[in-house]
Write a protein that binds this DNA or RNA. Sequence first.
DNA 1: TTGTAAGCGTTATCAC
DNA 2: GTGATAACGCTTACAA
Lengths: 336, 336
Amino acid sequence: MVTIKDIAKVTGVSATTVSNVIHGRANRVSAETVEKINSAIKTLGYVPNMSARTLVSNSSKVIGYINHTIPKKTQNIIDDPFHSIFTNILEQKLREHGYYLMYRTVETSEELLTFLRTWNVDGLFFTGVFKDTFFEALSSIQIPVVLIDSYTEQLNVFNVGLEDYNGCYTSTKYLIDRGHRNIAFASPSIKESGVVKERFDGYCQALCDASIPFDKALVLESEMDYDSCKAVSDKLCKLSHVTALVTTADIMAANIMVHLKAGGKSIPDDISIVGFDDIALSRLITPPLTTIHQDIPLKGSLAVDMMLQKLEGNPPRHSQIILSTKLIERESVRSI
Amino acid sequence: MVTIKDIAKVTGVSATTVSNVIHGRANRVSAETVEKINSAIKTLGYVPNMSARTLVSNSSKVIGYINHTIPKKTQNIIDDPFHSIFTNILEQKLREHGYYLMYRTVETSEELLTFLRTWNVDGLFFTGVFKDTFFEALSSIQIPVVLIDSYTEQLNVFNVGLEDYNGCYTSTKYLIDRGHRNIAFASPSIKESGVVKERFDGYCQALCDASIPFDKALVLESEMDYDSCKAVSDKLCKLSHVTALVTTADIMAANIMVHLKAGGKSIPDDISIVGFDDIALSRLITPPLTTIHQDIPLKGSLAVDMMLQKLEGNPPRHSQIILSTKLIERESVRSI
DNA sequence: TTGTAAGCGTTATCAC
DNA sequence: GTGATAACGCTTACAA
């Protein structure tokens, strides 16, 4: 391994001078020496050692991308189209700015804190945090934290999210405007707060604004995978007065749709469906899914921008960015 | 930050002793001292500093997960269902064994080597490497390297892959057995070697074994995204004698299918299609896709197992694991 | 413009 | 059983 000392030895200068050149402190070194050192660095193939740097500088250039949804070991991990998009965008932009991405699953706040200190992590990305989860931890963290799709009032924390409430308000209203009155709602478990709760509230409000009484029996909470959605479809079939379904994810909509179709229901003739996300899938299924569009790459991109700004000491103007959504009309809804 | 020295001070012992306790060298320390130190570690919240450890031990516990398919900046990054599955499985298992996952894009061998030395990386995962790409680099690397879906003869490198050749041989033969003679082949760019090339060869061989002359005009190379697949669909429509299509990816099959259907073609009546991968999507589209199944989570899982074995000094018995594929019959193929 | 020396947190060697 | 001490590669006062 080639070290700074090796470069120093070869060029006949001190380690300090080499370090100065590496860090571009050209004013402290003669042009001639700079030249000499740079060429030695090239020919010897010197590569800075981040461990050493981290140790002395208390900055590791490591950014953590935290996964706190514990993958169920017994079950196949569902492929999440957001995940690969985010990872790629985060890594790409961070890399351009000299940072490194560590992907890490944590199950508890304590694990998180330990991880941070183990590596002297410089910054943290989190997705889908909501009230109380990691709350204490988050507030004690001294490094930049950027949340994605999170609902938590933390002054020291930044967030980029979506008009979740509006999104489902829009999709529900869209259905209402087309004559639907008995509209079911399918989503994963509705927590006390968070993305799903917001979307649910949007659904409720749209109902309310149209003077449609809320019916708890029409709220179908379920996992989003293929098998779980079979049950949702079954329930839906029994709810024969229901003519439309609002969902909080295209994946879920698609999974429900296959089962509905297999059960002899026709979409949108028997039941209209609107999704959420507008992932690639939504154009691929039959009928193509009317859905709420969100710009996932943009979300990732803005999140890194925020991170980079904090990292480089230019506090972003807003601690919160809320992206708008829009409804994409395709063919899974009919007017009645 | 709590250091080993702090623990030493508080407990009235030397840093060496603390280190010994941390590393479970209980024989070198009295039970009493062990107790004392452990409790101090707990109450003070000591967390080992990996940078310091790495520096002195030349082992970082960092495993690199290398992405060498440069995301096109101008284009939205396609969501890759493999990616999230792999990342999750790799991270989960590595974590259980005390390792950390860094995700990193490299564009050149040099970048790769630099990355390795920057962090003293302990092991490397790579997907989709084929002949000559990173060849020199890979052979010079002294740490465990596990490849996924790669075709490269490197003695020092391990690989877990698929029966790619058999997979497409099977899907092509399946079509032939059902009376098809004019069978097109759609895939991303066919390189000199690699997964796609193997699958292409399987297709060719099946044709050959059935004495069907190979027709270059039926080979449709294209990007796999929605828009690119429009062109494939258009070509297919012009090739009016073609009754079936073999593809190397479900995503591609699905994208081609939508355009075919939009163009008035009926699947499988006008054209039969078989996919590859058996991702969740294949059951969601209409008609459900007949495809070649592969066990993606298993692939990831075996790859980590190999890595862990190498890391822990139990060289795996095989340097290559080839998973089998099987054809899943659904409804995108008809007999003629 | 360049160099010396101390120190970051940890581990290994060797002595007691 | 326990503890000095040096060393890992690098940066930063502070000197010269």
